[in-house]
Simulated assay, not measured.
Amino acid sequence: MTKVDNISNNKELSLEQPEELLSVLKARYENNMHRHEGLEWAKVQAKLDANTEKLWSLIEMERTGGEPDVVGYDEKKDEYIFCDCSAESPKGRRSICYDHEALEARKKHKPENSAINMATAMGIEMLTEQQYRELQKLESFDLKTSSWVQTPEDVRKLGGALFCDCRYGQVFVYHNGADSYYGARGFRGSLRV
């Protein structure tokens, strides 16, 4: 069983939560039109209204500091793509190692959780390196922090994991032991609705 500290186990939403979330998402959407040019909020909200089970995941993204916003639309699947757009790696998802295997392997000074465990518990996907690079084209993120990204299996089998950040106007990809964790490293996630 995975450890899911910091994630609400109660997926029941109060009557106020969806309304409050939609208000926050709409305001963020309107204040950041460069992230979703050509997309209409009314259509995004219609998708959210039709997929209320996704609201819990968006609430968790918001609660952990991700500041989710619409960053794209997949025409083939008819899905809007939400992504964490906080300036720095979400505060409620830092000081975590890469995955459950790394968490279990650590004998001393274990972090509270892992990025993969948290993403799974939240019902979101951790960004791939490519998705991270696409996000950085919208604006500069992680100028002071870094974010774990999905790691190729061959790298992970050797004990490593990948993370990214943005410095000097460039996206950098690095490696570290999957069991490492730092106060300035978390992860960014995405959700399709």
Rank of each mutant, 00 (worst) to 15 (best):
M1D: 13
R35D: 09
T52D: 01
T64W: 01
E62W: 04
L135H: 08
E60W: 03
D142Q: 11
S14A: 09
H100R: 05
E75S: 13
F82R: 01
E75C: 02
Y182R: 10
L138E: 01
V149K: 08
V24W: 11
G160A: 11
N10H: 06
G66R: 04
A87F: 13
G123H: 02
K3H: 14
S14T: 14
I59R: 01
F141A: 03
S23N: 13
N113I: 07
C85R: 08
E101L: 12
R28K: 09
E53L: 04
L21H: 01
N113T: 10
G65N: 03
R106W: 00
E79N: 12
G38I: 07
V193Q: 04
G159P: 06
T64H: 04
Y73G: 06
E134H: 08
R106Y: 02
S8G: 03
L162N: 15
E139M: 03
M1G: 14
S95N: 12
D74M: 05
L39D: 08
K11N: 04
G65W: 08
G186W: 07
Q170K: 14
I7L: 02
D69A: 09
I81S: 00
G169R: 03
S146Q: 04
E134K: 15
G38C: 08
S89Q: 12
S146P: 05
V193L: 09
D154W: 15
T128A: 06
L191E: 00
K3S: 08
N32E: 06
G92S: 01
R63I: 00
E67C: 10
T52R: 10
L191A: 01
Y73T: 07
R133P: 06
K157G: 15
H100D: 15
H100E: 11
E53V: 02
A46I: 02
E12K: 13
E112W: 11
G65Q: 00
Y168S: 13
G169F: 00
D165S: 12
E37S: 13
M33H: 05
Y98D: 04
E125H: 12
R185C: 05
Y98W: 02
Y29A: 07
N10G: 00
